[in-house]
Design a protein around this nucleic acid. Structure first.
Lengths: 239, 239
DNA sequence: AGGCTAGGTGTACGATGTACACCACGTCAA
DNA sequence: TTGACGTGGTGTACATCGTACACCTAGCCT
C-alpha cells in the first residue's frame, strides 16, 4: 500500500534520530548531545546515526528545524493584518517562537551559534518579514527593523546580567574576585531593581524582552509614519 | 631590586600564555585555540599551561579580559558628560569596544557564550551604565536600556542574514535546498537592498549596527524626557 | 647545607567526532 | 527459485581534545 518500500525493519530514520537528540537536549542540555549518547538512547551503535545524518552539525540543524517548524502559527486573519495592526502580527509570530523556549531552553544558544540558514529557519524569518511588509512598511525599513530586532525575532534577548549560572566560583588563577564597590553604577541599578521587586532573585526576563521589543517596534513604527528611508539620517537624534 | 623573586627563568607566565592564545585566535580563529596548540606555540608541553591557568575556560576568560581591558577609554571630559550629551558618552564607550572587533573577530562569539562576568567585563558594563546615569537617566531606565542594547554594548549586533560562511553547502541528508521563491518577503528585502547598494555583497554591518544602536538610544532618550519608569506602560504604543 | 616550592615534563585516561570495512537482509529481475 | 543489489546497522580504529597525576629540577631562604 505504502509507496515507500519498507526494506528491512527500519528501526531508525532521520526524524527518530532528531527526536531522540531533542529529548536528550531537553532533559540534560545541549552539551549532553553527543553522537554516542544519542545512539545509546536509541539502542544502537554510534555509527548507525550517520546513515541518517551527515554529521553532528547536520543533526543539530535538524533539531533546530524540528523545533522551529513547530512554532505555533497565528490564525491567518491576524498573521498578515494590514494597516496599523502589523505590530500585532509581528508580536504573534515572535510570541510563537518565544513559546518554544520554555520546553527547549537549548534553542537559544543553538540559534545564536547556528550559521546555516535552513528552510524552516528562513520560513520564520520570512513570516516576520511578511508581517512588516503587509503592514505597509517598505522593504528598506523592514530590512533594518529585522536587523534591529536581531535575535529577538526568535523570542529572546541576549543575557546580560545573568548570574544564575555562577556556581561556587571554582578556584581560578585569575586575580581577586570583583569588588562590588568598584561598580557603583551597576550597584545603583541593582539596588533600584531590588527596591522595585524586593522578592525577585534576578532580572525579569519577560519584562526585559518585552521592553526592548516594544521599544524597537514603537521606534520603527515612528520611522514608518514619517516615511523614513535608509538614505535619510539615522533615527533617534531628535533632541 | 625587583620585589618579585625570579625563581628559575620563568619562561612562562599568565600573560604570556594568554597573549599566545590571543595571537593564535587572531590568526586562525578561536577553534584553533587548544591547550596543545597554544603550548606548542610557546615551545612548551601542554600541561605547563596549567601552572598559569586553571583550565581552558579560565584561559578564554583571560583572553576576553585582556582584550576588554584594552578598549580605548574616551577622554574623561566626555566619558561622563552630563546632560544631553550622555548619548555621546555611551557612543564613545561602545565605539571603543567595537574597535577591538576588527583585530579580534573571535571576541564576538566568545562574549556571547561567556557566562562568567570577570572584573574587566563588569568594568565595561559599569562604564556604559555610568554614562547613562551621568546623563541624568534613572537607574531604572538605565537598567532596561542596558538590556535593550544587549550585546550591542560590546559593539556588535547579532548576525542575522549573514551568508558569508555558507561555503559549498556540503552534501547533507537534509531535504532539498531552500527555494528562493518560497521567501517572497526576504526576496523583496534583498532586492531592495541590492538596488540601493548595487555593488555590495552582503548587509552593511556598520550601518545595521548604527541603525539599531541609534534607534534604541533615541527611543530611550524619549522615555527619559518623559520621565518614564518601569511602573508605566511599555514604551512604543503611541499610534 | 638542606629543605621548600614554583614551574616545567611525561605519561596516561576518557570523551569526542567520524572514516572505513564489513555484513545482514529485504527487494526485485531473471 | 535464485542471485545481484542496495539499504542500513555493526565493529574497529584513529586523531584530537581537556586534564589528572607523578615526577623532576633549580633557585631561594633559613
Amino acid at each position: 500500500m505504502s509507496t515507500t518500500p519498507h526494506r528491512r525493519r527500519p528501526s531508525l530514520d532521520r526524524d527518530t534520530v532528531i527526536r531522540a537528540a531533542i529529548d536528550l537536549a531537553d532533559a540534560e542540555g545541549l552539551e549532553a548531545v553527543s553522537m554516542r549518547r544519542v545512539s545509546q538512547a536509541l539502542g544502537v551503535v554510534p555509527m548507525a546515526l550517520y546513515k541518517h545524518v551527515s554529521d553532528k552539525e547536520d543533526l543539530v540543524d535538524g533539531m533546530v528545524d524540528a523545533v522551529v517548524s513547530s512554532f505555533p502559527a497565528p490564525p491567518p486573519e491576524v498573521a498578515y493584518a494590514v494597516g496599523p495592526s502589523w505590530q500585532q502580527a509581528v508580536r504573534l509570530r515572535v510570541a510563537g517562537a518565544r513559546s518554544a523556549l520554555v520546553s527547549h531552553p537549548w534553542l537559544r544558544r543553538t540559534l545564536e551559534t547556528r550559521t546555516r540558514r535552513t528552510a524552516t529557519v528562513l520560513a520564520h524569518m520570512e513570516a516576520v518579514s511578511a508581517a512588516f511588509l503587509s503592514g505597509g512598511l517598505s522593504p528598506d525599513l523592514t530590512h533594518h527593523a529585522m536587523h534591529a530586532l536581531g535575535t529577538r525575532i526568535w523570542g529572546f534577548s541576549p543575557e546580560l546580567f545573568d548570574e544564575s549560572r555562577s556556581g561556587p566560583t571554582p578556584t581560578r588563577h585569575t586575580g581577586a574576585a570583583p569588588q562590588p564597590s568598584d561598580y557603583p553604577s551597576i550597584l545603583a541599578i541593582a539596588a533600584d531593581a531590588k527596591a522595585r521587586r524586593p522578592d525577585a532573585t534576578g532580572c525579569d526576563e519577560d519584562f526585559e524582552f518585552s521592553f526592548a521589543f516594544e521599544l524597537i517596534l514603537g521606534a520603527v513604527d515612528r520611522l514608518h509614519a514619517t516615511g523614513w528611508s535608509s538614505a535619510d539620517p539615522l533615527p533617534g537624534a531628535s533632541r
